[in-house]
Each structure stands twice: as C-alpha cells, then as structure tokens.
Measured scan of single mutants.
Amino acid sequence: DEDELTGILKKLSLEKYQPIFEEQEVDMEAFLTLTDGDLKELGIKTDGSRQQILAAISELNAG
C-alpha cells in the first residue's frame, strides 16, 4: 500500500510529503478518504500541493 502511495506522490513531484503520511500511518485506503481539511491538519500548507493531492485522490476514487 505504502509503495503505491509513494508512487502517486512521486508522480505529483510531492514525495517530500511522504514522511508526513508515513508518520501519521496514512495507508492507501486512508489516503483515498482525505479531505482538504485533513491535508491541512497533516501539515501540507501549500494550496497547490493540496489541490494536486485532492485531484489525484478523486481520480483514483473515480477508478
């Protein structure tokens, strides 16, 4: 699971946030449920980064 998540972050060039997800024990299943508020709480402060992550999440959820 973590590897898939790392792959997604790398694709977005946001792998610098990978340790945050690891630290908070966010797995792929949890990742797919994250909201903008969750990402802010995790410490992802950049709007653009959150938008990219949320776009990836909705794409993955759309299947």
Rank of each mutant, 00 (worst) to 15 (best):
L54H: 04
A56Q: 10
D38H: 05
D47I: 12
Q18P: 01
E41S: 13
S13Y: 02
L60D: 05
E41F: 05
N61C: 06
A55K: 15
L54M: 10
L39P: 01
G63K: 09
Q51M: 08
L60S: 04
Q24T: 07
G43I: 00
I53Y: 00
D47W: 06
Q18M: 13
E59A: 13
G37V: 13
G48Q: 13
K10W: 00
F21K: 03
E29K: 15
E2L: 15
E59C: 07
D38E: 12
A55E: 14
I20Q: 11
L12P: 00
L14A: 00
G63R: 15
P19L: 04
Q51R: 11
I57Y: 01
I57F: 01
Q51L: 07
Q52D: 15
R50G: 01
Q24I: 04
E4Q: 02
Q52I: 08
G43N: 06
D27T: 13
I53L: 13
Q24E: 13
A30K: 13
D38V: 00
I53H: 04
A30P: 01
Q51E: 10
E2V: 07
T46Y: 08
D1Y: 14
F31W: 04
G37I: 10
Q51T: 09
D36V: 03
A56G: 14
L12E: 00
I8R: 07
A55L: 09
K11Y: 03
D3G: 04
L5Y: 03
L12N: 05
L14D: 01
K40I: 11
A55C: 14
S58Q: 08
V26L: 09
L34R: 03
L12Y: 15
K40T: 10
G48T: 15
E59V: 07
E23T: 08
L34C: 04
E29V: 06
D36Q: 03
F21M: 05
T6A: 15
A56N: 05
E25K: 15
S13M: 06
E29C: 06
T33N: 12
K10G: 03
S58N: 15
L42M: 14
E59R: 11
A56I: 04
L14N: 00
L54Y: 02
A56K: 08
E2T: 15
K11R: 12
Q18V: 10
E23I: 06
L60A: 09
A56V: 10
N61H: 13
E2W: 15
T46N: 09
T35S: 14
T6N: 12
K10Y: 01
F31Q: 03
S13K: 11
D38W: 00
A62K: 07
D1Q: 13
L39F: 02
S58V: 06
D47T: 13
T35N: 11
S13C: 12
S49R: 08
D36F: 00
K40G: 06
E4N: 00
K10C: 00
G43S: 04
L60R: 10
Q18T: 11
E22T: 11
G48N: 10
L5N: 00
G63L: 09
L12Q: 03
F31T: 02
L54Q: 07
L14C: 02
L14Q: 00
N61F: 01
Q52S: 10
E59T: 10
M28P: 09
E22P: 01
E4T: 08
L34S: 04
M28S: 11
G37Q: 12
T33Q: 12
L32I: 09
L12M: 14
L5K: 00
L14V: 02
L34D: 02
D27L: 00
A30N: 12
L32H: 07
L32Q: 10
E22G: 05
E15G: 04
L42F: 09
L39N: 03
D36W: 01
S49D: 15
L54S: 07
R50T: 01
D1T: 14
Q18D: 06
E29Y: 05
K45L: 12
N61V: 05
A55I: 08
A62S: 11
K10H: 05
L39W: 00
L32Y: 06
V26P: 03
D38L: 00
E29I: 05
G43V: 00
I53Q: 01
A55H: 14
D27S: 11
A30S: 13
F31M: 06
L34F: 06
E29R: 13
E15T: 08
K10T: 12
A30R: 15
A56R: 09
N61Y: 05
E4P: 02
Y17D: 06
L32M: 11
M28R: 09
P19A: 11
G43P: 01
E22Q: 11
D38G: 07
S13A: 12
S49V: 14
Q24S: 13
G7A: 14
K40W: 07
D27G: 07
T33D: 10
E25P: 02
S13I: 08
D47M: 10
E41R: 12
I8L: 15
T6E: 00
L39Y: 01
E22L: 09
L5T: 02
S49E: 15
Q18S: 11
L32G: 07
L34H: 05
T35W: 00
T35L: 00
T35A: 05
I53M: 12
G43C: 01
K16N: 03
E25Y: 07
K11V: 02
I8Y: 09
D38P: 02
L9P: 00
L32F: 07
K40P: 01
L9F: 11
K40C: 08
V26F: 09
I20L: 10
I57N: 04
L39E: 02
Q18W: 06
K16Y: 07
Q18R: 13
D36G: 05
M28T: 14
D27C: 05
I44W: 02
L12A: 04
L32K: 15
K16L: 05
K40E: 12
E2I: 15
E23A: 12
T6S: 04
Y17M: 14
Y17W: 12
D36N: 07
D27V: 00
L54K: 07
G48W: 04
Y17S: 04
V26M: 13
G7K: 14
E15V: 05
E41D: 12
S58F: 04
E23N: 09
L12I: 15
D36R: 01
N61A: 09
T33M: 12
F31L: 06
G63M: 06
G63H: 08
Q24L: 06
E41A: 12
Q18N: 03
E2R: 15
E25S: 11
E29F: 02
G37D: 15
E23S: 09
T46M: 13
L14P: 00
L5C: 01
E25V: 08
D1F: 06
P19R: 10
I53E: 06
T46V: 10
Q51C: 05
Q52Y: 03
A62T: 09
I53A: 06
